[in-house]
Design a protein around this nucleic acid. Structure first.
Lengths: 104, 104
DNA sequence: TATTTTATATCGGATATGCGATATTGGAAA
DNA sequence: TTTCCAATATCGCATATCCGATATAAAATA
């Protein structure tokens, strides 16, 4: 165990959540996570997650110029995210105060 | 992958957080997590986490009647938790609204 | 056109994570 | 005391998670 509370896991949740807020490419996802965590996840981390979400029908490619692929969340993805968010809230409901106090 | 957003990980964080709020035994930790997640983590899940937290100096045993061991967070544990909470907030700062809206 | 850069894709592997099964141990109850 | 139960402890394992390395391919630039 690298350190206590290593904050591993939840990546799929985070990515789906990011895309639900704004259509994004893989690189944009990487950059947004870097902003939040300080470290940029490697391509080998992000692209398999996108592939999985796409294959599962939770996100879909949208037309975009160039080779950049942008994704948007699907109806099925919204349902999935909604359920996952509910679980998240059950688990962390008392983080409310911390989040309000510490975050801009 | 069992399903999207499987909510794995973060268990160590959750356990340390629970103990920081109230001195707890292993069984109490299991029960509190059951309340939140719906499923009770197995002994093989919880006790190794307690052992790790104890060995790391983040929690310590307190006297208690019977064979039940209760733990309390240490000063070092508070520091650790504080840092972990900060990371958590950076990562999930925009869950604030969901938490407020969905949770009692 | 040739070269470089950038975005995406994939694969193997190291490590973390949590579980099931089982053992142990102290107290309660018979 | 003997039996039973509940809390703790440990071990091996299946799986998830993420990364580094590498490949591919398209666009930008020289």
């Amino acid at each position: 165990m690298e350190s206590c509370c290593s904050m591993k896991g939840f990546l799929t949740f985070i990515v789906l959540r990011l895309i639900s807020k704004k259509n994004m490419s893989g690189e944009e996802v990487r950059e947004e996570i870097r902003k939040r965590k300080g470290t940029r996840p490697s391509p080998g981390t992000v692209y398999p997650v996108l592939k999985y979400l796409n294959k599962s029908g939770f996100i879909e490619e949208i037309k975009h110029k160039g080779k950049i692929k942008k994704y948007k969340i699907t109806k099925k993805g919204k349902k999935e995210l909604n359920e996952a968010t509910q679980k998240f809230c059950m688990l962390f409901y008392d983080m409310k105060d911390d989040l309000s106090r510490r975050c801009y």
